[in-house]
């Protein structure tokens, strides 16, 4: 469960993830931060934000669980 493992898996699969977050839907539950703290944070308004440079979700192996963990479908992950 390290970011290195996720990176390896990502390279092995030959494609990267792209994460989009919808601050208008966000209710600040923090499920994303709890599930993948290497990728997600909350801003000053306690709404979803990506950590700098984490748009590809490489920083946390559990990042794929986040869309389902979010109570309001504010996070979408697509694979390029």
């Amino acid at each position: 469960m390290t970011s290195r493992a996720a990176g390896t898996e990502r390279r092995g699969a030959g494609h990267a993830l792209r994460i989009t977050v919808d601050r208008d839907r966000c209710i600040g539950s923090g499920q994303c931060v709890m599930t993948a703290p290497g990728v997600f944070t909350q801003d000053d308004e306690a709404l979803v934000a990506l950590l700098p440079g984490q748009e590809d979700g490489a920083g946390d192996s559990r990042v794929r669980e986040v869309p389902l963990a979010c109570p309001v479908q504010a996070i979408v992950i697509t694979e390029d």
């Binding site: 209710i27 600040g28 306690a46």
Partner: peptide, 13 residues
């Protein structure tokens, strides 16, 4: 209503 309260219950806080 919820928007007004979210910052007070954020993860960092």
């Amino acid at each position: 209503q919820r928007r007004m309260l979210i910052p007070s219950f954020g993860v960092k806080r």
